[in-house]
């Protein structure tokens, strides 16, 4: 089956602009939640306004390599220094809190699944999202990757990661639809396969992902790299047609077909 992608959102944390209407609901949220909710709002707001939005048939798969790691360490700091733990901070440290915020603020009542993996978290979420659309479980599905990293991780990367550059925090979000409910698809996805390769932990700190699409290759560092690059290539530069796409890294390979709408 072919799954349409009808909207994309990507942003680094530094460039994130939170819509004013979300400010009140996000006043206590951490960066991880800000990124997730803003991205979800960015891809869904248009189709909610158009109507025909079925809350029960809209869901999400959120992938992350590290989850809300900075917030996790803020809670750990309170524990080891014997301060009272902040209940808000603790609730934000739970990995699926961003999904909960997205669902609550955007009124999504279908599945909300958070997946954690050091290897290809976006594409693992995408694989499950495509299956949910194909099976008819969902009509609309947000697929996200959110990464905020942490000061501890950045320090560990510089100590043990062979001088790898720090990665920018950010988010990538695609909206999948059963049929193109929101209008013309940006592109279509088919046959996503993920092959995992064995990697020793520290190798991941100097990671690079190479994206091959349309006969061209680009290599990107960082955990959001391939998902963000692919979004840019597909949306901004319009590299469409019928293209096998391949993402390669030390820890495995992702293969899928990406088609333009006109190519069907």
């Amino acid at each position: 089956m072919t799954v349409p992608v009808t909207n994309c959102f990507r942003s680094t944390l530094d460039n994130l602009t939170v819509p004013g209407e979300l400010a009140r609901q996000l006043r206590r949220a951490d960066d991880f939640v800000h990124l997730g909710v803003t991205a979800g709002h960015g891809v869904l707001a248009g189709c909610m306004e158009k109507g025909g939005f079925s809350a029960k048939k809209t869901g999400m798969y959120l992938g992350s390599a590290f989850g809300p790691m900075q917030t996790n360490f803020e809670v750990l700091d309170q524990v080891v220094t014997q301060q009272p733990v902040s209940p808000i901070l603790f609730s934000l440290s739970v990995f699926n809190t961003a999904a909960g915020y997205i669902a609550s603020i955007l009124g999504i009542r279908g599945c909300s699944v958070t997946l954690t993996d050091f290897s290809f978290p976006f594409f693992r979420a995408l694989q499950q999202g495509m299956a949910a659309i194909e099976s008819g479980m969902l009509d609309r599905c947000l697929v996200l990757q959110v990464e905020t990293y942490s000061d501890v991780l950045i320090d560990g990367t510089s100590r043990y990661g062979g001088g790898a550059e720090p990665w920018p925090a950010g988010v990538v979000c695609w909206l999948l639809e059963r049929t193109a409910l929101s209008g013309k698809p940006l592109f279509l996805l088919e046959d996503l396969e993920i092959e995992s390769g064995g990697t020793e932990g520290k190798d991941r700190l100097s990671l690079q992902e190479t994206v091959s699409l349309g006969g061209k290759q680009e290599t990107t560092p960082g955990y959001l790299g391939a998902a963000a690059m692919l979004s840019r290539l597909l949306v901004k530069e319009g590299r469409l047609g019928v293209n096998p796409c391949r993402v390669e890294s030390l820890y495995g390979t992702v293969c899928m077909n990406i088609r333009s709408f006109e190519g069907v």
Partner: peptide, 10 residues
Amino acid sequence: SGPRAVITNA
């Protein structure tokens, strides 16, 4: 060898 997922839905 096969698909894998760690689900962190609290």
